[in-house]
Design a protein around this nucleic acid. Structure first.
Lengths: 310, 310
DNA sequence: CTGAAAGCGCTTACAG
DNA sequence: CTGAAAGCGCTTACAG
């Protein structure tokens, strides 16, 4: 049992007194094969005794793809969205006998191809693609129910509920991947609330650059009283800039985060933000790439975490 | 070229008018095979024309393991250590024709086995193992030159240089994986500096629990004037607790982080910390698991980033 | 200098 | 109800 060479299908067949095909049939529940309960039970017992596990590589060669799915993720793992998404994706894949593996950083086409050549993954998922584009969730009604549009509405809505009408969307940089969609959804949300369209401000790193950017922005847009962060990071940078400028938050200006990180709670004043549980999004992504139905999966609604910056 | 079925070794052999073995020999630079320059060139040209790439799965079946190495990582990716380590590991592996793949979260033995069965990785690396245990780096003299011992010394040394003699080591929780080794190295560092051994304080989440813990600790240890954080996160929590307690930093107490995150710079006062570039550690880990020599790899020394909490 | 053959561990028509 | 055979795409003794 210990240390021994790993058991192979042939071993199981030999020990059960049947052919390898038969073993394979019972292990895979192949339809239209009538194998007696007795043999079936005997084989299963041998499988257990020998600790037989199918050899993934051999299976992959035969089937054309391995039971691996790879997740490409470019952003960090600070926010709750990414963590819960990862958990959902991982668990759902595992439940369907697949294993998740992740690649970080920008996806060079070369690296992606290299990985494809190396393990023939069953599928590839790009982090939060459906959420980020809004498209797929939109098609299922999820965009406005539990997708980016809904979450943006939560953010803008919270600001509006506190009396703010001139809102700025704080962006990490001009090339932020979701910039356009976030601007769109923010505009729609403001529109529905009868507010003017949010303007946009880039709050870069490092600290003093962010402060300079916010100072300049405020000079040009004196009517703006609230900042809706693209994510918690940008919101925190904005909050810091405002602090460095001597602007009282929330007295003179409000700041709201997006996608709860652990750091927001630690700032003073602590960051008000929207908390998103994306486990269902991860599960849906898993089902999608496996070609399974997703109708029974329901995301839990996001919620505003009221702290002290609005 | 586009859309066609992927080229196979057989295709290359046929197009070059040689056997598959010959193609394999030239592609793998198999020693002790004398193949004429002419055939070699011809084969290489065909390989290029056909866009032939070895089929990783087939190769893995034949060779026994795939050219994948998996990194298990439990902690987040917030700090500079993990990011630079990941980069070094990834690049070094790629340079040796392997591909890195990562698994997040606690390593269930089951999940690890499942992945092993699925892709027969060439090797498995556990995040920063050599660094964290200190053992391997120590053996090569690296522990004190560019390992955890050296970095701990940097942290304690900075505090000492600012006149602090009673230092507390702030831990995220009592079960922190590196707790013992960090305590050991901190004690050694203090000893070398002629300081008493640091005491230990756990600063938990959430914010108010952290504050309560720090308040209680200060009650019991009034002589302590400096907190050395296990990492930036804990340091930030400690800093926040001190703020909530009305303790002036750095006037009444100093706080020092460990492993620079982006958030430290955003706090007020901004966190003094030690910045570690672990790219070489990642490269060394890659070489180690591949059985390659590492003597030429030299870590860049860590450095203290002086901000405003010491 | 090069090729025919075996074999890595599976799955799945096909034949009884 | 079950088995013998082919084949997924490679690599590597082995034989010329």
């Amino acid at each position: 049992m210990a240390g021994a060479k790993r058991a192979t299908l042939k071993d199981v067949a030999a020990a059960s007194g049947v052919s390898r095909a038969t073993v394979s049939f019972v292990l895979n529940d192949t339809p239209n094969q009538s194998i007696s309960q007795a043999t079936r039970a005997r084989i299963l017992a041998v499988v257990r005794d020998l600790g037989y596990k199918p050899h993934g590589i051999a299976r992959a060669l035969r089937e054309g793809t391995s039971r691996i799915v790879v997740l490409y993720i470019d952003s960090g793992l600070e926010g709750n969205y990414s963590r819960s998404y990862l958990r959902g994706l991982d668990e759902e894949l595992a439940a369907h006998d697949h294993v998740l593996v992740v690649r970080h950083g920008p996806t060079g086409a070369g690296a992606e191809q290299q990985l494809r050549d190396a393990i023939n993954p069953r599928a590839v998922v790009h982090f939060a693609e459906a959420y980020r584009t809004g498209h797929e969730l939109e098609d299922r009604g999820g965009g406005r129910r539990d997708g980016l549009a809904a979450h943006t509405m939560l953010q803008i809505g919270c600001l509006a509920a506190h009396g703010h009408t001139r809102i700025a969307l704080a962006l990490p940089d001009a090339q932020a991947p979701l910039r356009e969609i976030r601007e769109l959804f923010s505009r729609q949300a403001a529109g529905e609330l009868g507010l003017p369209s949010p303007v946009t401000v880039v709050v870069p790193r490092p600290r003093d650059a962010g402060t300079a950017a916010v100072a300049e922005f405020r000079g040009g847009h004196p009517a703006v009283t609230a900042f809706a962060g693209y994510d918690d990071d940008v919101a925190l940078r904005t909050l810091t800039a405002l602090h460095d400028l001597g602007v009282d938050v929330p007295g003179e200006a409000a700041v709201m985060g997006f996608d709860d990180t652990e750091y927001g709670a630690l700032f003073t004043p602590a960051l008000t933000t929207v908390h998103i549980d994306a486990e269902a999004h991860g599960r849906i992504a898993a089902r999608d790439v496996l070609g399974l139905p997703t109708a029974d999966l329901q995301a839990v609604p996001a919620r505003v975490i009221e702290r002290h910056t609005v």
